[in-house]
Nucleic acid binder design. Sequence first.
DNA 1: CGGGCAATTGAACAATGTCAAATTTTGTGG
DNA 2: CCACAAAATTTGACATTGTTCAATTGCCCG
Lengths: 242, 242
Amino acid sequence: MPTACADCPLRCQPMFQPMNAGEVAFMQAFKSSEVEVAAGQVLLWEGQSSPWLYTVLRGQGLRSKSLPDGERQVVNFVFPGDFLGLQSGVMGEMKHSVEATTDMTLCRFERNELWRVFRDQPARAFDLTYLAATEEHFLGEALLTLGQRDATSRLAWALLRLWRRAVATGMQGPRGVPLPWRQRDLADALGLSLVHTNKTLARLRILGAAHWSGGYLAVPDPARLAELAQEEDGASTPRPLF
Amino acid sequence: MPTACADCPLRCQPMFQPMNAGEVAFMQAFKSSEVEVAAGQVLLWEGQSSPWLYTVLRGQGLRSKSLPDGERQVVNFVFPGDFLGLQSGVMGEMKHSVEATTDMTLCRFERNELWRVFRDQPARAFDLTYLAATEEHFLGEALLTLGQRDATSRLAWALLRLWRRAVATGMQGPRGVPLPWRQRDLADALGLSLVHTNKTLARLRILGAAHWSGGYLAVPDPARLAELAQEEDGASTPRPLF
DNA sequence: CGGGCAATTGAACAATGTCAAATTTTGTGG
DNA sequence: CCACAAAATTTGACATTGTTCAATTGCCCG
Protein backbone atom coordinates (compact mmCIF):
# COMPACT_ATOMS: atom_id res chain seq x y z
CA MET A 1 0.00 0.00 0.00
CA PRO A 2 1.49 3.33 -1.06
CA THR A 3 2.18 6.05 1.44
CA ALA A 4 -0.53 8.71 1.55
CA CYS A 5 0.77 12.23 1.04
CA ALA A 6 -1.09 13.21 4.20
CA ASP A 7 1.14 10.80 6.10
CA CYS A 8 4.36 11.68 4.27
CA PRO A 9 7.20 11.00 6.67
CA LEU A 10 9.43 13.58 5.02
CA ARG A 11 7.28 16.68 5.18
CA CYS A 12 7.58 16.91 8.94
CA GLN A 13 11.38 17.03 8.75
CA PRO A 14 12.75 20.47 9.58
CA MET A 15 14.43 20.93 6.22
CA PHE A 16 11.13 20.98 4.34
CA GLN A 17 8.55 23.74 4.18
CA PRO A 18 5.08 22.98 5.45
CA MET A 19 2.22 22.45 2.99
CA ASN A 20 -1.42 23.40 3.39
CA ALA A 21 -4.29 20.92 3.09
CA GLY A 22 -5.17 21.95 -0.43
CA GLU A 23 -1.63 21.41 -1.56
CA VAL A 24 -1.44 18.00 0.07
CA ALA A 25 -4.64 17.02 -1.70
CA PHE A 26 -3.27 18.21 -5.01
CA MET A 27 -0.05 16.26 -4.55
CA GLN A 28 -2.03 13.17 -3.63
CA ALA A 29 -3.97 13.48 -6.88
CA PHE A 30 -0.82 14.26 -8.84
CA LYS A 31 0.97 11.19 -7.50
CA SER A 32 0.20 8.35 -9.88
CA SER A 33 1.95 5.51 -8.07
CA GLU A 34 4.70 4.41 -5.78
CA VAL A 35 7.58 2.30 -7.05
CA GLU A 36 10.46 0.34 -5.57
CA VAL A 37 13.82 0.16 -7.32
CA ALA A 38 16.75 -2.04 -6.45
CA ALA A 39 20.26 -0.79 -5.72
CA GLY A 40 22.21 -0.36 -8.93
CA GLN A 41 19.19 0.37 -11.12
CA VAL A 42 19.28 3.43 -13.36
CA LEU A 43 16.10 5.50 -12.96
CA LEU A 44 16.74 8.17 -15.55
CA TRP A 45 19.16 8.12 -18.46
CA GLU A 46 21.22 11.05 -19.64
CA GLY A 47 19.94 12.13 -23.06
CA GLN A 48 16.62 10.31 -22.67
CA SER A 49 13.17 11.63 -22.07
CA SER A 50 11.17 10.08 -19.26
CA PRO A 51 7.40 9.78 -18.99
CA TRP A 52 7.74 10.04 -15.22
CA LEU A 53 8.99 12.36 -12.55
CA TYR A 54 9.83 11.16 -9.07
CA THR A 55 10.20 12.26 -5.50
CA VAL A 56 12.49 10.11 -3.38
CA LEU A 57 10.64 8.67 -0.41
CA ARG A 58 13.37 6.34 0.84
CA GLY A 59 16.91 5.38 -0.11
CA GLN A 60 19.90 7.07 -1.69
CA GLY A 61 21.35 7.44 -5.16
CA LEU A 62 23.49 9.62 -7.37
CA ARG A 63 23.31 11.81 -10.43
CA SER A 64 26.08 11.58 -13.00
CA LYS A 65 27.17 12.66 -16.46
CA SER A 66 29.71 11.15 -18.79
CA LEU A 67 32.25 12.30 -21.33
CA PRO A 68 32.40 10.55 -24.74
CA ASP A 69 35.60 8.83 -23.61
CA GLY A 70 33.80 7.33 -20.62
CA GLU A 71 35.04 9.60 -17.85
CA ARG A 72 32.29 10.00 -15.29
CA GLN A 73 31.36 13.06 -13.25
CA VAL A 74 29.12 12.59 -10.26
CA VAL A 75 26.99 15.70 -10.24
CA ASN A 76 25.20 15.24 -6.93
CA PHE A 77 24.13 12.68 -4.37
CA VAL A 78 20.45 11.89 -4.02
CA PHE A 79 18.58 11.83 -0.70
CA PRO A 80 15.00 11.33 0.43
CA GLY A 81 12.97 14.38 -0.51
CA ASP A 82 14.84 15.03 -3.75
CA PHE A 83 12.82 15.63 -6.89
CA LEU A 84 14.04 13.75 -9.95
CA GLY A 85 13.42 14.34 -13.63
CA LEU A 86 12.57 18.03 -13.70
CA GLN A 87 14.98 18.58 -16.59
CA SER A 88 13.23 15.94 -18.62
CA GLY A 89 9.94 17.46 -17.53
CA VAL A 90 10.67 20.94 -18.81
CA MET A 91 13.47 20.53 -21.37
CA GLY A 92 12.37 17.24 -22.87
CA GLU A 93 15.39 15.16 -21.92
CA MET A 94 17.63 14.47 -18.97
CA LYS A 95 21.03 16.08 -18.93
CA HIS A 96 22.37 13.57 -16.44
CA SER A 97 21.60 10.02 -15.32
CA VAL A 98 20.19 9.08 -11.95
CA GLU A 99 20.89 5.71 -10.41
CA ALA A 100 19.94 4.06 -7.16
CA THR A 101 22.80 3.36 -4.76
CA THR A 102 20.60 1.62 -2.22
CA ASP A 103 17.15 0.16 -2.69
CA MET A 104 14.76 3.07 -3.05
CA THR A 105 11.09 3.92 -2.82
CA LEU A 106 9.84 6.62 -5.17
CA CYS A 107 6.65 8.61 -5.58
CA ARG A 108 5.91 8.63 -9.29
CA PHE A 109 4.22 11.38 -11.29
CA GLU A 110 3.16 11.59 -14.92
CA ARG A 111 5.14 14.00 -16.99
CA ASN A 112 2.05 14.73 -19.07
CA GLU A 113 0.33 16.08 -16.00
CA LEU A 114 3.09 18.57 -15.24
CA TRP A 115 1.39 21.39 -17.11
CA ARG A 116 -1.52 21.11 -14.66
CA VAL A 117 0.79 22.24 -11.89
CA PHE A 118 1.55 25.42 -13.77
CA ARG A 119 -2.06 25.96 -14.80
CA ASP A 120 -3.82 25.15 -11.53
CA GLN A 121 -1.27 25.49 -8.75
CA PRO A 122 0.81 28.62 -9.18
CA ALA A 123 2.25 28.29 -5.70
CA ARG A 124 3.43 24.77 -6.47
CA ALA A 125 4.81 25.92 -9.82
CA PHE A 126 6.75 28.52 -7.92
CA ASP A 127 8.10 25.77 -5.70
CA LEU A 128 9.23 23.85 -8.74
CA THR A 129 11.16 26.89 -9.88
CA TYR A 130 12.54 27.18 -6.36
CA LEU A 131 13.79 23.61 -6.55
CA ALA A 132 15.48 24.24 -9.87
CA ALA A 133 17.10 27.34 -8.41
CA THR A 134 18.23 25.31 -5.41
CA GLU A 135 19.90 22.78 -7.66
CA GLU A 136 21.53 25.62 -9.56
CA HIS A 137 22.80 27.00 -6.28
CA PHE A 138 24.23 23.66 -5.27
CA LEU A 139 26.00 23.18 -8.58
CA GLY A 140 27.51 26.64 -8.25
CA GLU A 141 28.93 25.67 -4.87
CA ALA A 142 30.27 22.44 -6.33
CA LEU A 143 31.88 24.35 -9.16
CA LEU A 144 33.51 26.68 -6.65
CA THR A 145 34.77 23.63 -4.82
CA LEU A 146 36.31 21.92 -7.83
CA GLY A 147 37.73 25.14 -9.14
CA GLN A 148 39.23 26.68 -6.02
CA ARG A 149 39.62 24.18 -3.19
CA ASP A 150 42.44 21.67 -2.74
CA ALA A 151 41.83 17.98 -2.17
CA THR A 152 41.48 18.20 1.62
CA SER A 153 38.99 21.04 1.43
CA ARG A 154 37.04 19.32 -1.29
CA LEU A 155 36.58 16.16 0.72
CA ALA A 156 35.79 18.12 3.86
CA TRP A 157 33.23 20.16 1.94
CA ALA A 158 31.59 17.11 0.45
CA LEU A 159 31.44 15.15 3.67
CA LEU A 160 30.10 18.14 5.57
CA ARG A 161 27.38 18.61 2.98
CA LEU A 162 26.41 14.96 3.04
CA TRP A 163 26.44 14.99 6.81
CA ARG A 164 24.22 18.05 7.10
CA ARG A 165 21.77 16.79 4.54
CA ALA A 166 21.51 13.36 6.13
CA VAL A 167 21.02 14.89 9.58
CA ALA A 168 18.38 17.32 8.30
CA THR A 169 16.58 14.38 6.73
CA GLY A 170 16.47 12.59 10.06
CA MET A 171 18.90 9.83 9.14
CA GLN A 172 21.27 10.17 12.05
CA GLY A 173 21.80 6.96 14.04
CA PRO A 174 24.23 5.69 16.67
CA ARG A 175 26.92 5.00 14.06
CA GLY A 176 26.50 8.38 12.42
CA VAL A 177 24.67 8.81 9.12
CA PRO A 178 24.48 6.26 6.31
CA LEU A 179 26.88 6.94 3.44
CA PRO A 180 26.36 4.03 1.07
CA TRP A 181 28.61 5.27 -1.74
CA ARG A 182 32.11 4.10 -2.73
CA GLN A 183 35.30 6.11 -2.55
CA ARG A 184 35.21 6.00 -6.33
CA ASP A 185 31.89 7.89 -6.29
CA LEU A 186 33.31 10.63 -4.07
CA ALA A 187 36.41 10.79 -6.26
CA ASP A 188 34.27 11.16 -9.38
CA ALA A 189 32.23 13.86 -7.68
CA LEU A 190 35.25 15.90 -6.69
CA GLY A 191 37.48 15.52 -9.72
CA LEU A 192 40.13 13.61 -7.78
CA SER A 193 41.76 10.27 -8.45
CA LEU A 194 40.63 7.32 -6.39
CA VAL A 195 44.06 6.94 -4.83
CA HIS A 196 44.33 10.55 -3.78
CA THR A 197 40.79 10.47 -2.43
CA ASN A 198 41.69 7.48 -0.33
CA LYS A 199 44.80 9.11 1.08
CA THR A 200 43.01 12.35 1.79
CA LEU A 201 40.19 10.54 3.59
CA ALA A 202 42.84 8.87 5.74
CA ARG A 203 44.18 12.31 6.61
CA LEU A 204 40.73 13.57 7.61
CA ARG A 205 40.34 10.50 9.77
CA ILE A 206 43.67 11.14 11.51
CA LEU A 207 42.70 14.77 12.02
CA GLY A 208 39.58 13.51 13.76
CA ALA A 209 37.40 15.49 11.36
CA ALA A 210 35.43 12.71 9.73
CA HIS A 211 35.28 8.95 10.09
CA TRP A 212 33.75 7.15 7.15
CA SER A 213 33.77 3.37 7.17
CA GLY A 214 31.39 0.49 6.91
CA GLY A 215 28.91 2.66 5.06
CA TYR A 216 28.54 5.17 7.87
CA LEU A 217 29.92 8.63 8.36
CA ALA A 218 30.65 10.02 11.81
CA VAL A 219 31.50 13.68 12.29
CA PRO A 220 32.54 14.27 15.91
CA ASP A 221 33.07 17.98 15.40
CA PRO A 222 31.21 19.56 12.47
CA ALA A 223 32.79 22.94 13.16
CA ARG A 224 36.24 21.44 12.69
CA LEU A 225 35.15 19.90 9.41
CA ALA A 226 33.64 23.20 8.31
CA GLU A 227 36.93 24.89 9.02
CA LEU A 228 38.82 22.41 6.86
CA ALA A 229 36.21 22.96 4.16
CA GLN A 230 36.67 26.75 4.33
CA GLU A 231 32.96 26.99 4.96
CA GLU A 232 31.17 29.38 7.22
CA ASP A 233 28.47 27.39 8.90
CA GLY A 234 25.07 28.92 8.37
CA ALA A 235 21.77 27.23 9.08
CA SER A 236 20.08 26.35 5.82
CA THR A 237 16.56 27.57 5.13
CA PRO A 238 13.84 24.99 4.60
CA ARG A 239 13.03 24.22 0.99
CA PRO A 240 9.84 23.05 -0.65
CA LEU A 241 9.13 19.35 -0.87
CA PHE A 242 7.50 18.32 -4.08
CA MET B 1 13.62 55.92 -25.09
CA PRO B 2 13.46 52.32 -23.98
CA THR B 3 13.19 49.47 -26.45
CA ALA B 4 9.64 48.20 -26.88
CA CYS B 5 9.29 44.45 -26.34
CA ALA B 6 7.53 44.26 -29.69
CA ASP B 7 10.75 45.51 -31.29
CA CYS B 8 13.09 43.40 -29.19
CA PRO B 9 16.18 42.77 -31.28
CA LEU B 10 16.94 39.52 -29.46
CA ARG B 11 13.72 37.59 -29.89
CA CYS B 12 14.28 37.21 -33.62
CA GLN B 13 17.64 35.51 -33.06
CA PRO B 14 17.51 31.79 -33.82
CA MET B 15 18.51 30.74 -30.31
CA PHE B 16 15.32 32.11 -28.77
CA GLN B 17 11.83 30.68 -28.92
CA PRO B 18 9.12 32.79 -30.53
CA MET B 19 6.53 34.51 -28.36
CA ASN B 20 2.90 35.20 -29.14
CA ALA B 21 1.33 38.64 -29.08
CA GLY B 22 -0.25 38.15 -25.67
CA GLU B 23 3.06 37.18 -24.19
CA VAL B 24 4.81 40.16 -25.72
CA ALA B 25 2.15 42.41 -24.27
CA PHE B 26 2.55 40.85 -20.85
CA MET B 27 6.32 41.27 -20.97
CA GLN B 28 5.92 44.87 -22.00
CA ALA B 29 3.71 45.48 -18.98
CA PHE B 30 6.02 43.50 -16.73
CA LYS B 31 9.05 45.51 -17.81
CA SER B 32 9.31 48.45 -15.47
CA SER B 33 12.25 50.26 -17.03
CA GLU B 34 15.43 50.06 -19.01
CA VAL B 35 18.78 50.83 -17.41
CA GLU B 36 22.34 51.37 -18.53
CA VAL B 37 25.28 50.19 -16.46
CA ALA B 38 28.93 50.93 -17.00
CA ALA B 39 31.65 48.30 -17.40
CA GLY B 40 32.90 47.16 -14.01
CA GLN B 41 29.64 47.82 -12.15
CA VAL B 42 28.23 45.04 -9.97
CA LEU B 43 24.54 44.48 -10.73
CA LEU B 44 23.74 41.84 -8.17
CA TRP B 45 25.66 40.93 -5.04
CA GLU B 46 26.18 37.43 -3.72
CA GLY B 47 24.24 37.07 -0.47
CA GLN B 48 22.04 40.10 -1.14
CA SER B 49 18.42 40.32 -2.10
CA SER B 50 17.55 42.50 -5.06
CA PRO B 51 14.29 44.36 -5.71
CA TRP B 52 14.87 43.89 -9.44
CA LEU B 53 15.31 41.21 -12.01
CA TYR B 54 16.91 41.87 -15.38
CA THR B 55 17.15 40.64 -18.91
CA VAL B 56 20.31 41.59 -20.74
CA LEU B 57 19.53 43.61 -23.85
CA ARG B 58 23.09 44.55 -24.76
CA GLY B 59 26.59 43.95 -23.43
CA GLN B 60 28.43 41.21 -21.61
CA GLY B 61 29.24 40.34 -18.03
CA LEU B 62 30.05 37.52 -15.65
CA ARG B 63 28.65 35.67 -12.67
CA SER B 64 31.01 34.77 -9.83
CA LYS B 65 31.19 33.42 -6.31
CA SER B 66 33.89 33.79 -3.68
CA LEU B 67 35.45 31.74 -0.95
CA PRO B 68 35.99 33.34 2.49
CA ASP B 69 39.72 33.54 1.71
CA GLY B 70 39.00 35.61 -1.38
CA GLU B 71 39.43 32.94 -4.08
CA ARG B 72 37.02 33.67 -6.89
CA GLN B 73 35.13 31.24 -9.09
CA VAL B 74 33.60 32.54 -12.27
CA VAL B 75 30.37 30.60 -12.58
CA ASN B 76 29.29 31.69 -16.04
CA PHE B 77 29.64 34.41 -18.61
CA VAL B 78 26.68 36.65 -19.34
CA PHE B 79 25.36 37.42 -22.82
CA PRO B 80 22.44 39.34 -24.31
CA GLY B 81 19.24 37.43 -23.63
CA ASP B 82 20.33 36.13 -20.23
CA PHE B 83 17.94 36.50 -17.33
CA LEU B 84 19.55 37.78 -14.12
CA GLY B 85 18.35 37.58 -10.54
CA LEU B 86 16.05 34.58 -10.64
CA GLN B 87 17.71 33.14 -7.53
CA SER B 88 17.03 36.30 -5.63
CA GLY B 89 13.53 36.29 -7.04
CA VAL B 90 12.60 32.85 -5.80
CA MET B 91 15.04 32.10 -2.97
CA GLY B 92 15.28 35.58 -1.50
CA GLU B 93 18.96 36.18 -2.12
CA MET B 94 21.57 35.82 -4.82
CA LYS B 95 23.99 32.93 -4.54
CA HIS B 96 26.49 34.61 -6.84
CA SER B 97 27.38 38.12 -7.95
CA VAL B 98 26.84 39.50 -11.43
CA GLU B 99 29.03 42.23 -12.81
CA ALA B 100 29.19 44.06 -16.11
CA THR B 101 32.29 43.43 -18.19
CA THR B 102 31.30 45.89 -20.89
CA ASP B 103 28.74 48.66 -20.73
CA MET B 104 25.33 47.03 -20.68
CA THR B 105 21.68 47.79 -21.30
CA LEU B 106 19.19 45.91 -19.15
CA CYS B 107 15.44 45.43 -19.11
CA ARG B 108 14.41 45.81 -15.48
CA PHE B 109 11.51 44.05 -13.73
CA GLU B 110 10.10 44.40 -10.23
CA ARG B 111 10.69 41.42 -8.02
CA ASN B 112 7.38 42.10 -6.27
CA GLU B 113 5.57 41.51 -9.53
CA LEU B 114 7.10 38.08 -10.04
CA TRP B 115 4.21 36.27 -8.42
CA ARG B 116 1.93 37.68 -11.12
CA VAL B 117 3.82 35.64 -13.69
CA PHE B 118 2.99 32.47 -11.82
CA ARG B 119 -0.60 33.51 -11.17
CA ASP B 120 -1.52 34.92 -14.59
CA GLN B 121 0.91 33.48 -17.10
CA PRO B 122 1.45 29.78 -16.53
CA ALA B 123 3.26 29.39 -19.84
CA ARG B 124 5.70 32.13 -18.89
CA ALA B 125 6.11 30.57 -15.43
CA PHE B 126 6.98 27.35 -17.19
CA ASP B 127 9.58 29.23 -19.21
CA LEU B 128 11.07 30.59 -16.02
CA THR B 129 11.46 27.05 -14.76
CA TYR B 130 12.92 26.14 -18.11
CA LEU B 131 15.52 28.86 -17.73
CA ALA B 132 16.45 27.65 -14.27
CA ALA B 133 16.78 24.11 -15.63
CA THR B 134 18.94 25.42 -18.47
CA GLU B 135 21.25 27.07 -16.00
CA GLU B 136 21.38 23.86 -14.00
CA HIS B 137 22.28 22.01 -17.18
CA PHE B 138 25.07 24.40 -17.96
CA LEU B 139 26.53 24.16 -14.48
CA GLY B 140 26.48 20.39 -14.73
CA GLU B 141 28.50 20.62 -17.94
CA ALA B 142 30.91 23.02 -16.30
CA LEU B 143 31.30 20.66 -13.35
CA LEU B 144 32.05 17.82 -15.74
CA THR B 145 34.63 20.02 -17.37
CA LEU B 146 36.44 21.01 -14.18
CA GLY B 147 36.26 17.51 -12.81
CA GLN B 148 37.27 15.43 -15.79
CA ARG B 149 38.95 17.47 -18.52
CA ASP B 150 42.59 18.57 -18.63
CA ALA B 151 43.65 22.16 -19.18
CA THR B 152 43.62 22.03 -22.97
CA SER B 153 40.16 20.48 -23.11
CA ARG B 154 38.85 22.93 -20.55
CA LEU B 155 39.95 25.93 -22.53
CA ALA B 156 38.73 24.41 -25.78
CA TRP B 157 35.37 23.66 -24.17
CA ALA B 158 35.01 27.16 -22.78
CA LEU B 159 36.01 28.94 -25.97
CA LEU B 160 33.74 26.73 -28.05
CA ARG B 161 30.84 27.49 -25.75
CA LEU B 162 31.49 31.23 -25.83
CA TRP B 163 31.88 31.09 -29.58
CA ARG B 164 28.63 29.25 -30.15
CA ARG B 165 26.68 31.48 -27.85
CA ALA B 166 28.03 34.65 -29.38
CA VAL B 167 27.29 33.39 -32.89
CA ALA B 168 23.77 32.32 -31.91
CA THR B 169 23.22 35.77 -30.47
CA GLY B 170 24.21 37.36 -33.77
CA MET B 171 27.45 38.88 -32.53
CA GLN B 172 29.76 37.53 -35.19
CA GLY B 173 31.72 40.17 -37.09
CA PRO B 174 34.72 40.24 -39.40
CA ARG B 175 37.18 39.83 -36.51
CA GLY B 176 35.26 36.95 -35.00
CA VAL B 177 33.08 37.39 -31.92
CA PRO B 178 33.69 39.85 -29.09
CA LEU B 179 35.29 38.29 -26.01
CA PRO B 180 35.80 41.21 -23.66
CA TRP B 181 37.03 39.22 -20.66
CA ARG B 182 40.56 38.83 -19.29
CA GLN B 183 42.64 35.68 -19.18
CA ARG B 184 42.22 35.92 -15.42
CA ASP B 185 38.45 35.56 -15.85
CA LEU B 186 38.82 32.43 -17.97
CA ALA B 187 41.33 31.03 -15.50
CA ASP B 188 38.94 31.67 -12.60
CA ALA B 189 36.14 30.02 -14.55
CA LEU B 190 38.12 26.88 -15.29
CA GLY B 191 39.99 26.38 -12.04
CA LEU B 192 43.37 26.98 -13.66
CA SER B 193 46.16 29.36 -12.76
CA LEU B 194 46.55 32.47 -14.85
CA VAL B 195 49.97 31.38 -16.09
CA HIS B 196 48.84 27.95 -17.13
CA THR B 197 45.80 29.43 -18.85
CA ASN B 198 48.04 31.74 -20.80
CA LYS B 199 50.34 28.95 -21.93
CA THR B 200 47.45 26.72 -22.88
CA LEU B 201 45.85 29.50 -24.91
CA ALA B 202 49.12 29.87 -26.76
CA ARG B 203 49.01 26.15 -27.54
CA LEU B 204 45.48 26.43 -28.92
CA ARG B 205 46.62 29.32 -31.05
CA ILE B 206 49.53 27.32 -32.46
CA LEU B 207 47.21 24.41 -33.14
CA GLY B 208 45.08 26.81 -35.14
CA ALA B 209 42.03 25.97 -33.02
CA ALA B 210 41.26 29.37 -31.53
CA HIS B 211 42.72 32.82 -31.82
CA TRP B 212 41.77 35.16 -29.02
CA SER B 213 43.36 38.59 -28.96
CA GLY B 214 42.39 42.20 -28.88
CA GLY B 215 39.06 41.31 -27.32
CA TYR B 216 37.96 39.13 -30.23
CA LEU B 217 37.83 35.39 -30.65
CA ALA B 218 38.26 33.75 -34.04
CA VAL B 219 37.55 30.06 -34.51
CA PRO B 220 38.61 29.02 -37.99
CA ASP B 221 37.47 25.42 -37.52
CA PRO B 222 34.83 24.82 -34.84
CA ALA B 223 34.93 21.07 -35.44
CA ARG B 224 38.63 21.02 -34.58
CA LEU B 225 37.96 22.94 -31.39
CA ALA B 226 35.10 20.60 -30.52
CA GLU B 227 37.43 17.67 -30.93
CA LEU B 228 39.95 19.18 -28.55
CA ALA B 229 37.11 19.84 -26.13
CA GLN B 230 35.95 16.22 -26.32
CA GLU B 231 32.57 17.52 -27.31
CA GLU B 232 30.19 16.07 -29.83
CA ASP B 233 28.73 18.97 -31.72
CA GLY B 234 24.97 19.00 -31.61
CA ALA B 235 22.76 21.88 -32.57
CA SER B 236 21.30 23.45 -29.46
CA THR B 237 17.53 23.84 -29.16
CA PRO B 238 16.11 27.33 -28.85
CA ARG B 239 15.35 28.46 -25.32
CA PRO B 240 12.79 30.87 -23.99
CA LEU B 241 13.68 34.53 -23.77
CA PHE B 242 12.28 36.24 -20.73
C1' DC C 1 37.34 -22.01 1.36
C1' DG C 2 37.58 -19.14 -2.74
C1' DG C 3 36.41 -15.29 -5.82
C1' DG C 4 35.74 -10.56 -6.46
C1' DC C 5 35.22 -5.95 -5.30
C1' DA C 6 36.73 -2.25 -2.30
C1' DA C 7 40.19 -0.15 0.37
C1' DT C 8 44.96 0.76 1.24
C1' DT C 9 49.85 1.68 0.45
C1' DG C 10 54.35 2.92 -1.85
C1' DA C 11 56.99 4.73 -5.63
C1' DA C 12 57.70 6.99 -9.98
C1' DC C 13 55.89 10.35 -12.91
C1' DA C 14 53.24 14.20 -15.10
C1' DA C 15 50.33 18.08 -15.03
C1' DT C 16 49.70 22.17 -13.11
C1' DG C 17 50.85 25.84 -9.73
C1' DT C 18 54.06 29.51 -8.00
C1' DC C 19 57.46 32.99 -8.43
C1' DA C 20 59.75 36.53 -10.77
C1' DA C 21 60.69 39.39 -14.48
C1' DA C 22 60.22 41.13 -19.26
C1' DT C 23 57.19 42.81 -22.68
C1' DT C 24 53.09 44.39 -24.70
C1' DT C 25 48.73 46.67 -24.55
C1' DT C 26 45.54 49.89 -22.78
C1' DG C 27 43.96 53.98 -20.77
C1' DT C 28 44.62 58.86 -19.42
C1' DG C 29 46.06 63.52 -19.15
C1' DG C 30 48.42 67.06 -21.39
C1' DC D 1 49.07 62.96 -31.07
C1' DC D 2 52.46 61.94 -27.43
C1' DA D 3 54.15 60.53 -22.90
C1' DC D 4 53.48 58.04 -19.12
C1' DA D 5 51.42 54.92 -15.80
C1' DA D 6 48.84 50.99 -14.94
C1' DA D 7 47.13 46.72 -16.30
C1' DA D 8 47.39 42.60 -19.01
C1' DT D 9 50.04 39.26 -21.34
C1' DT D 10 53.99 36.46 -22.00
C1' DT D 11 58.02 33.67 -20.74
C1' DG D 12 61.38 30.77 -18.04
C1' DA D 13 62.78 28.23 -13.91
C1' DC D 14 61.32 25.67 -10.25
C1' DA D 15 58.05 23.65 -6.64
C1' DT D 16 54.09 20.92 -5.57
C1' DT D 17 49.94 18.58 -5.83
C1' DG D 18 47.81 15.04 -7.62
C1' DT D 19 47.99 10.99 -11.03
C1' DT D 20 49.31 6.50 -12.57
C1' DC D 21 50.99 2.04 -11.90
C1' DA D 22 51.37 -1.91 -9.25
C1' DA D 23 50.94 -4.72 -5.52
C1' DT D 24 48.78 -5.96 -1.05
C1' DT D 25 45.21 -6.36 2.25
C1' DG D 26 40.58 -6.64 3.97
C1' DC D 27 35.90 -7.93 3.55
C1' DC D 28 31.52 -9.87 1.98
C1' DC D 29 29.05 -13.64 0.21
C1' DG D 30 28.27 -17.87 -2.03
